[in-house]
Each structure stands twice: as C-alpha cells, then as structure tokens.
C-alpha cells in the first residue's frame, strides 16, 4: 500500500508519455512538430554515445554551479551585512533595490558587448540573476529573527560571534533556503536564454545547433535535460533543507 502511494506522483507523467507515444504512432502528432518519446530517447542515446551529451551537460552544469555560487555568495554576504548593520543597510539597500528593477536578461546585449560570447558573459548573467533573491531573502531572514531570542542571548552574555553563529544564522536559514531555491530556478532560466543566444557549447547551444538541422528530437531532448537538471538541483536543495531545518516541525517529514 505504501509502495503504491510512493508511485502515485508518477501516474500522470506516465500517462502523458503513453498518450504522447500513442498519438505519434497513430500519426495524430506529426514528427516535425513533436517527435515520439521513443525517438527523443533514441536521440538522447545517440548523443550519449557520441560523448556530446556529457560534454554539453558538463559545461552547462559548471556554468550553473559557478555562476550560482558567485551570485549566491555575494547575495548572502550582503544580505547578512545589511541585516546586521543599520548603517550598511541604509547605505546600500536602496541602491540595490533600484538595480533589482532592471530585469537581468535585459542586460544580455550589453553583456555581449562587454564580454563577447565568452564564459564570463554567462557567469555574469547567472550570478546577477541569483544575487537578488538570495540577497533579499537573507536580509529578510536576518531581520526577522525573533528579537526575544536575541535579547535572551545578550542577557546570557553571548559574544557577538556566538550570537551570529548560534542565533542569527540558524534563525535566518529557512528564509535563506527560500532564496536559494528561487535562485536555482533563475539560474537555469538564465542559462537557457544565454546559451541559446550566445554560446558555442552547453545544452542550449546543442539545442540551437540541432534546430538548424531540423533535428526536432534533439531539441526536445535538450529541453527535457534542462528540466531534469533543474529538478535534480531542486531535490538536492530540498534534501539539504530537510537536514538543516530538522528542528522545524514543518520540514521534518515534508
């Protein structure tokens, strides 16, 4: 019974696949619009054998990881700083919020002018996109730590380092995680756009390249890979979240 329950979320995707496959076999869906799932799988298999798949996935994952780390680290550090220091917040927050209103993807032409189509352009865009959600949520998390707990820690003579490590950071963590998951979503979105517009490697490039040769199956496969990578990143974050926030009943068995 419990094993059946575990399978329940997969029923709908499986059904969609079956209908899709059947539709293709019966000729209801034209292969030039949407190839059959089996053809997409075959295309993936070919890409895997040629080594193209792993190379491009590796490049994309590397860009995502590095860009996310840079943007996330800066966002976290500034969020923490502005959360802890009124002076710093007054100095920086308004400026940062103003820049936030510029959609980072609108910067693509400018970024191409600055960096060409090199790696820096992609990393810059990803980092820029990730920065804001992580910054805003870290700031919010630090600011919303229960002041009663901070007062308690002070009354017990906790040093400011211990206060940050044992009270403020753990208190802000749930909010930081919200920022991280939001940032991960932006990472993949940014990468798809950036790799499609200007790249010579990566999954997006693979898809654009296939489009020129009308290889619809490869295009569809690339889209699925993006979805899969996004899902993997989200699952890892969820796992981390559940481990780090085990104290919170809301996360204990979600």
């Amino acid at each position: 019974m419990s094993r059946l329950r575990g399978l329940l979320p997969w029923v709908v995707p499986l059904l969609v696949l079956i209908i899709w496959q059947a539709g293709s076999e019966l000729g209801l869906i034209r292969a030039t619009v949407l190839p059959a799932p089996s053809d997409v799988a075959l295309a993936g298999w070919r890409l895997l054998l040629s080594g193209e798949l792993l190379r491009n996935v590796g490049v994309s994952a590397w860009r995502a990881g590095l860009g996310f780390t840079i943007g996330g680290a800066i966002g976290f550090a500034l969020g923490l700083l502005n959360g802890l220091s009124d002076l710093s917040q007054r100095l920086l927050d308004t400026s940062l919020q103003m820049v936030r209103n510029v959609p980072h993807l609108a910067m693509i032409p400018l970024v191409i002018l600055w960096f060409g189509i090199g790696e820096e352009a992609k990393l810059f865009l990803v980092a820029l996109g990730v920065f804001f959600p992580v910054y805003v949520n870290t700031l919010h998390g630090v600011r919303s730590v229960d002041p009663h707990l901070i007062e308690m820690a002070g009354a017990y003579g906790m040093s400011s380092r211990a206060l940050i490590r044992r009270v403020i950071l753990p208190g802000a963590l749930p909010s930081v995680f919200v920022g991280v998951r939001y940032g991960l979503g932006i990472t993949w979105l940014t990468l798809i756009v950036a790799e499609t517009i200007s790249a010579t490697s990566g999954i997006g490039y693979m898809a654009m390249n296939a489009r020129e040769f009308l290889m619809v199956d490869v295009v569809v496969f690339a889209i699925l890979i993006y979805a899969l990578l996004g899902k993997v990143a989200d699952s890892v974050t969820r796992l981390l979240e559940r481990r780090c926030l085990a104290w919170n009943p809301a996360y204990r068995n979600a």
Binding site: M152, A153, Y156, G157, M158, S159, A162, R166, P170, G171, L173, L245, W247, N248
Partner: peptide, 14 residues
C-alpha cells in the same frame, strides 16, 4: 534549532 542540552549550554555562554 538547538537540541535541549545545547539550549541549556546557552546558560554558560561567555
């Protein structure tokens, strides 16, 4: 976010 014992240890801060 701290286990009971760690919470009591807060009383020994500093």
């Amino acid at each position: 976010w701290a286990r009971i014992r760690r919470n009591v240890e807060v009383g020994l801060s500093g």
